[in-house]
């Protein structure tokens, strides 16, 4: 197993006590595509960030087991963590506008990412950067390398992010809402690109999103989170057979092009869903 999480908890200290944002999540991930779906505040991003130990300073992390390829993430020192972060596990975030350095050309940023992990000379890094950009299907890599982030579109920016992430040949890719800032046509392209790269390189993928139908299209398994817990894990093809009322409610309240309805059903949240 690439990732093994058992009884993960993330707690925040508040003025009046503690707030448990992730309340006992367990999951095992191999070289597969796992989707984590939930609404804002469900703890889906925190779960993925715990794995990299990239949590806000006031968060407390505990787990029965939290390992990445056998490395105990809970007790690993910072040096060990740095060999995981970015190198063995790549991270892609929502908006490339905020993830790219605005005052550095794209070519230099990709080359820098490559050199950080692989070493080597400037020339070599430049060649590698062009190759990486080519792999994410940027048509004219040499031209794009000379551009600044504000000169490229959102979809192109996200391709650049993926290229940087690919530089150290990671084993796991964590994508946190990678396409929510993008148009529908671009969104499909980027997800297909990620799916293709992950399959071809034999990587694991954790795709975090609020969009249940979208995720089920691109993943093998989907874990549905609600209020800090995984309430249901489904094979992606079996979404229609979801049993948990929350999952069903999420699917049901989407407006549909093909099945119009006068009123949308509203999710009635049940206090019982909070219980394990």
């Amino acid at each position: 197993m690439l990732v093994d999480i058992a009884d993960l908890r993330v707690t925040f200290a508040t003025r009046t006590g503690t707030f448990e944002a992730v309340r006992g999540v367990s999951m095992r991930i191999g070289t597969e595509k796992l989707g984590i779906v939930g609404e804002s505040g469900s703890g889906k991003s925190l779960t993925a960030r715990s794995l990299m130990r990239l949590l806000p300073a006031n968060a407390r992390l505990s787990a029965e087991r939290l390992t990445f390829d056998g490395i105990d993430v809970l007790n690993a020192d910072e040096r060990t963590m740095r060999t995981i972060r970015g190198r063995r596990a790549g991270f892609i975030l929502q908006d490339p506008k905020y993830s790219l350095n605005p005052v550095m050309t794209i070519g230099r940023q990709v080359a820098e990412a490559w050199r950080t992990h692989k070493g080597g000379g400037r020339r070599e890094a430049e060649e590698a950067a062009a190759d990486l950009l080519d792999q994410v299907r940027i048509r004219d890599p040499r031209h794009v390398m000379g551009l600044y982030p504000h000169e490229v579109s959102g979809g192109m920016g996200q391709r650049v992010m993926i290229a940087m992430m690919l530089a150290p040949d990671p084993e796991l890719l964590i994508a946190d809402e990678p396409t929510s800032a993008l148009d529908a046509t671009v969104q499909a392209e980027i997800l297909r690109l990620m799916e293709d790269l992950v399959t071809r390189r034999g990587m694991g993928l954790i795709l975090i999103s609020h969009d249940l139908p979208l995720v089920s299209h691109f993943c093998d398994r989907v874990a549905v989170m609600y209020a800090g817990r995984v309430v249901e894990t489904l094979a992606a093809g079996e979404l229609a057979r979801a049993r948990h009322p929350y999952t069903r409610g999420l699917l049901d309240c989407l407006p549909s092009l093909t099945h119009p309805r006068e009123r949308l059903p509203v999710l009635a949240r049940d206090a019982a869903w909070l219980q394990p």
Binding site: D183, C253, V266
Partner: peptide, 30 residues
Amino acid sequence: VSVQAEILNLLADLRRQRRLTYVLVSHNLA
């Protein structure tokens, strides 16, 4: 999406009750 459903229902109700005219911009066809 669950909140979206509530807001869409609210907008539909308000339009009916107040006979409002809407121009809605969205990237979401549905």
